[in-house]
Design a binder for these strands. Sequence first.
DNA 1: ATAGGGTTAG
Length: 614
Amino acid sequence: MSIAILKTIFHYFSLTANPSLHQIKQTHARLITAGYDGDTHFTGQLLAALAQSQSTPFRYSLSILNSTQNPSLFAINNLIRCCAKSESPHEAFSLYSSMCKKPQFRPNNYTFSFLFQACSKFTGLTEGNQIQTHVIKLGFFDNVYIRNALIHLYFTSHDTKCAKDLFDECPSSRDLVTWNVMIAGYAKAGKINDVEKVFDEMPERDVISWSSLITGYMQNGYLEQALDSFKRMIDLQLSPNEAILVTVLSACAQLGLIENGRQIHSTINSLNCQMTVHIQTSLVDMYAKCGYINKARDLFNEMPIKDLSSWNVMICGLAIHGLAMEAIELFEKLLIKGLNPDNVTFIGVLNACSRAGLVNKGRHYFKLMTEKYKITPEMEHYGCMVDLLSRAGLVLDAIELVEKMSTPPDPVLWVTILGACRTHGLIQLGEETGKKLIQLDPNHHGNYIQLSKIYAKSYKWEDVVKTRGMTNDRNCKKIPGWSLIEAHGKIHQFVAGDRKHDMSLEIYKMVDRVNIRVLEAGYSPDLLPILHDLEEEEKVNAIKEHSERLAIAFGLLVIEGGECIRIVKNLRICGDCHEMTKVVSKVFEREIVVRDGSRFHHFKGGECSCQDYW
DNA sequence: ATAGGGTTAG
């Protein structure tokens, strides 16, 4: 093996974005057989190639460095870079510390840049501060790469103030990346006003500035603003990249905005954006979550390359649509393909079982997950199992499972059990569970409501009033329920008793009309869960102003006949609204699809796709 | 010869 060939190979590596570990190892072997083991120049080359590769096994890189007597600074820097990318970034600091003991060691700007990168990965602010003193002493503090990496480190260590001070301190050593780091940092810190301020003030923006702004909105729950920014960006004729498309598709999926999602889909096609596995997966997810499971399935089947997350979104999508058997079949197909399911895959499968009441299958897959695939169940897996067992009436089994857990159970698990006690008439057990739950999680409004409903079921009105009263004393957090509906490209959002909509008057007239029609058709509201001391009429009003009823009334007014009315609700639909919506679908001859906090309900001809199992 | 910032499924 001649030097010329080896040099050519390394030249090829330097031009390759992600040289394979296998090829690098082969070259390493060739170096050894050619007698260049430990050669200073080639050691540096090898480490540079490894630093550029996606897999950066730290032990291997270290052994390469140790094979040479006098490693170059170039080699050391690349080893630190390998380390920063690897699973053990903290090793970079110990490596640096041991290097500092050698008197001839003179770190340069590259060294510090990689070091701060490593510190950000393990949020080693203490280590970072030590390195910072060296940076100042050696006169590298004005280097913009180093400064940006340091600002980034302060943000990842939640020291927003220090990050901002560094940014303000030296306006001359700022570049585009500095501004982008500020946007992303403020976004992670939840300071959305600062995100917007920085974005507006920055002298120029690139695609990452936009991406940071959009994901900043997403991370802080401003989904509509994320979509607005995306539109602004498209209007400016800028090309979105994969990160942005994945993010905005996720916003559409979460909000259930199919018109918006379709528009983004056609934007992707018309802009000649490169289609990737991630984007296709996000499209499948978006269509599934917006209620178009058939479209999602078609897209999934057409995907030339699928990764595990593609399978996961499809399995989870089928599960939320109640297509349990198909979800299970797809899961079995994934196993036959030889893919290894992960924790998310099992959430989808267990969810599917739970939605369809497949108790034995659920137990089987839970066992498969822990025993064969050695996946430690997370709270979500327990959530599915508790749901599955308690809704099937096996409340005692569910309690046993929760009590056997090695980690403290999320109070939500007890909420599920409590709900099941109520539906299965286990009053005594329900009361005990409810009291325990309130002790565990005293600030959650819903817990008191659940317990009061149990009392109502056994006509203990004094306890109902007492329990409800406690919510005021204890300053409980109440998650406001909302429903949204997309009509002619616009989003309309309603909360219970909402009178802010432009068409409010007509909407409430429609609510009354709907009420009369459904009552004529034999629907009778279940008033038990509502406070007993309200006047009869007030009780009816309290239910009839639920946000989904306003959205349905609005849908009946503005969505053309023959078109499906699609509603997205953040919380779970209440039993009474569920009953009423079934009747509405029959008397108004309209298909109504409600995506609630838990799953899809497809109402048609007086029936719901969940078959009342929810 | 070596540098940085943003991303998805529960």
